[in-house]
Simulated scan of single mutants.
Amino acid sequence: MTQSTLELELLRTFVAVADQASFGAAGRQLGRTQSSVTQHMQRLEQQAGVSLFHKQGRQKALTDAGRQLLRHARQMLALNDDILDRLRDNSLSGMLRIGSPHDIADTILPPILSHIARSAPNLRLEIDVGRSPFLMDDLHRGKVDMIISTRTDPTLQGFALRTSPVWWICAAQYQHDPSQPLPLVVVDEPSIFRRVALEALEAHNIPWRQAYLASNLIGIKAAVRAGLGVTARSMEMVGPDMRVLGESDGLPRLPDVTYYLWVRRNAVNPLVQKAYELIRTSQGL
């Protein structure tokens, strides 16, 4: 009888689900969508040949087989990471400056930083969290070595890290009234989220008013949590004190947004290209 092989990538997702006690939270930790996490768990159950979860109220809890697999999964992942760390070239050293937008600084960015730290422990990391258009300017001026951005630029070298849905987001207690102009919470220009929101509202002849103008995501979150209005942002912004409005609320569907990793072509510092290839390989590219 041919034995199935457990994929380490699926086991890593499984451990994240067990640690976070939520498919959605595990997805945010790993930089994946909730549907991707669900697919991973379905494939893992097929490979294991047993059920790993059972319903417990509105949550999914581990079965006895799931708890047993969790112990082995942690051991297998620790052994895998230890072997790779020992085989990697630890000569990669110096300073790497990475720019990241606020909205994915605690979702897409952490797994990338963790992978770099494991694979190149002698590399020092400097993180600059800001807005995508300004990070792009910083990259061209050489203030940072690589960035994660929603912007595209054919003069740069890069690849797509993740595509996320863009949602209409409001506070959990916010009372939506479709008969009134939509109170928008927006960031000042330039902003891809501001642009797609206004284009969608104008295309569907939905009246709106500017309820709050912010200069960064911190201000956007504060205004939304205060119930001042609705904003258009990627799914990464949604917290437990927020909810999503959709077509059933009279609002149009918004286009997805893609986050890219960019570096300058022919960067003078050789460690930038090495770190870039390290991240690219970790994404299976």
Rank of each mutant, 00 (worst) to 15 (best):
L69T: 00
L79D: 13
L77C: 15
D64R: 03
Q47P: 10
M76V: 10
D81Q: 12
G66D: 02
R43M: 07
D64V: 05
Q75G: 13
Q46P: 05
Q68L: 11
L52R: 01
D64H: 13
A78D: 15
A61M: 09
D64F: 09
K60R: 06
L44D: 05
F53T: 00
K55G: 07
E45V: 03
R71Y: 08
D82K: 14
Q47C: 03
R43V: 04
L79M: 07
N80D: 07
D81H: 14
I83E: 10
N80R: 03
L69D: 01
H72L: 04
L77K: 06
A65K: 03
L69H: 04
T63R: 05
Q75K: 11
A48H: 04
L69C: 05
R67L: 03
A78P: 00
R71N: 14
S51P: 00
E45R: 02
M76S: 05
R74T: 07
T63M: 05
D64A: 09
G49D: 05
L52C: 00
A78H: 12
L70H: 12
L44K: 01
I83N: 05
Q42L: 09
R43E: 10
K55W: 15
R58I: 15
K55A: 11
L79Q: 15
A78E: 14
T63E: 01
L52N: 00
I83A: 07
